[in-house]
Simulated assay, not measured.
Amino acid sequence: MTPTSHHQEGAGGVERVGVVGCGLMGSGIAELSALAGYDVRVAVSSRSTPAAGRSRVAASLDRAVRAERIGAAERDEALGRISFTSDLLDLADRQLVIECIAEDKDAKVELFALLDKTVEDPEAILASNTSSLPITTMASATGRPEQVLGLHFFSPAQRMPLVEVISSLHTAESALARAEEFVTVGLGKQAIPSTDRTGFVVNALLVPYLLAAVRMVESGFASAETIDRGMTLGCSHPMGPLKLADLIGLDVVRSVADALYDEFKETLYAPPPLLTRMVESGFLGKKTGRGFYRYG
């Protein structure tokens, strides 16, 4: 867990952070930012969601206290820094807004157009946590494309040390520098730069590897257990590719694969039929209790 000591007042010129969406990634980024000392406001899609969002963050902070990563006082202070709203207009005063809604291009474009009208500070950074969609498309929906960039956190955001900082052809150097300072000085994370290419750095390498493992299972060449043991014991990976795919979510793996294939038209990016059938059957991995393995 990122301790509060990382936060420097106004790192990257940011003190007030907005997060749109409170699923796994949104709640994780909100928690991380609050623990680092930021004033965080989370916008959710419906009036019933704020309570669910708050309880998700509280449960995660409680786990961190039990694991002795933070103290009870830190937990209480962090919760006190997070507010929830179902009205996007409540993000008007934010200096950085991070979008964490579903990987749906049309929905994201619509949201960025709304954020452009809502966020008052023309220097505010509008960031997307997308794992695969073009930043340029979202930037073009705004009147301030130079202030739009990608901040791709990895799950769980509270624990994983990396953030990809993605620039489009429009992004201003000053916005990039401020975003990187927020990530490194403010949140205490490691940042790597990426240009605006589908999959960015990590997923462009990771997803073909995961798909190759799925194809091995599909062809009957090897079982999921055999493949995963091979990679953990033979390559010192902390987790095999199929267990990792289950953890990420097979729907997410397929959506990134689809985006990569759409952009590059290379066979290694094409989702194998087995992956598509599993997603269509609702076997999405750990979050649904069944993927390449069974859970719970």
Rank of each mutant, 00 (worst) to 15 (best):
219 S>M: 11
256 V>C: 00
177 A>L: 09
162 L>I: 04
268 L>E: 09
117 K>R: 15
132 S>G: 04
88 L>H: 12
179 A>T: 06
155 S>E: 07
142 T>D: 09
128 S>R: 00
295 Y>I: 08
110 E>G: 12
234 G>M: 08
13 G>S: 07
39 D>K: 13
98 I>S: 10
48 S>R: 09
12 G>P: 12
198 T>E: 02
285 G>T: 00
127 A>K: 06
292 F>M: 07
118 T>F: 14
87 D>L: 04
240 G>S: 06
118 T>V: 15
102 A>D: 10
16 R>D: 15
242 L>W: 01
141 A>T: 05
235 C>V: 07
32 L>I: 05
216 M>Y: 08
180 E>Q: 14
272 P>M: 02
118 T>S: 07
212 A>N: 00
160 M>K: 02
130 T>P: 04
108 K>S: 00
247 L>V: 08
82 I>K: 03
14 V>T: 13
172 A>Y: 09
239 M>C: 07
279 V>P: 04
176 L>M: 14
26 G>C: 07
258 D>L: 12
288 T>M: 01
44 V>Y: 01
275 L>A: 00
225 E>I: 09
82 I>S: 05
167 S>W: 00
279 V>H: 02
68 E>K: 07
189 K>P: 12
219 S>H: 04
257 A>H: 10
23 G>Y: 06
267 T>M: 02
170 H>E: 14
283 F>Y: 12
33 S>L: 08
105 K>M: 11
132 S>H: 00
123 E>T: 13
195 T>N: 14
21 G>Y: 14
95 Q>G: 11
200 F>S: 00
121 D>H: 11
109 V>P: 01
97 V>T: 15
17 V>Y: 10
109 V>M: 08
230 G>T: 08
206 L>D: 04
29 I>H: 05
41 R>W: 09
